[in-house]
Simulated scan of single mutants.
Amino acid sequence: MTTDVEGRQRTNQLASQSVLIVEDELLIAVDLESTTREMGLDVIGLATNKEQALRLAPMADIALVDVNLADGATGPEIGRHLVEEFGVTVVFMTANPEAVAGRMQGALGVVSKPATPWIVRNSLRHALEARSAAGR
């Protein structure tokens, strides 16, 4: 059982984490944003391409990254930049998880699309725990 103080501390910890959503399908991006905000996390932006993702990256702690974007950029390519240059914790999202096998380059995991809000919430919680364990 958590106390009121523990609950407030956890809420404050969540609120202090910022999420970048890299997704070129608007309806999916809006659903991800809604689920993320319901958790108390701050969504810093929705990026639909590599350029936007890298511009927003310095403000992000965690990123949900689609594997294939309409501009031809790939999730693994963007994820590598986010992890190596900005220290962002990356979770890939794709309808074809096998396509990412062996190309995760520092990402925390892969979520199969379509993903339920429950799966997205659990993936974000796992990312938060991994950041915390790493001292970030």
Rank of each mutant, 00 (worst) to 15 (best):
G75R: 00
E77W: 04
I78R: 00
G79V: 11
G79F: 14
R80V: 08
R80T: 09
R80K: 13
H81R: 01
L82A: 07
V83H: 14
V83R: 12
E85W: 06
E85P: 02
E85M: 02
E85N: 11
E85H: 03
F86H: 15
F86S: 05
V88T: 09
T89P: 05
T89E: 15
V90G: 13
M93D: 02
T94N: 08
T94H: 03
T94M: 10
T94A: 05
N96L: 03
P97H: 01
P97N: 00
P97K: 04
E98F: 05
A99T: 03
G102S: 12
G102R: 11
R103K: 15
R103D: 05
R103C: 02
R103S: 06
M104N: 05
M104E: 15
M104K: 07
A107E: 11
A107P: 00
A107N: 10
L108N: 07
L108Y: 14
V110K: 03
V110Y: 05
V110N: 05
V111D: 00
V111N: 01
K113I: 00
A115V: 02
A115T: 05
T116W: 09
P117W: 14
I119M: 06
I119G: 05
V120Y: 10
R121N: 06
S123T: 10
S123K: 09
S123F: 06
L124V: 14
L124R: 04
L124A: 06
L124C: 07
R125M: 12
A127Q: 07
L128T: 15
L128F: 07
L128S: 10
R131M: 11
R131N: 08
R131W: 06
S132W: 13
S132H: 11
A133R: 15
A133T: 10
G135Y: 13
G135E: 08
G135A: 06
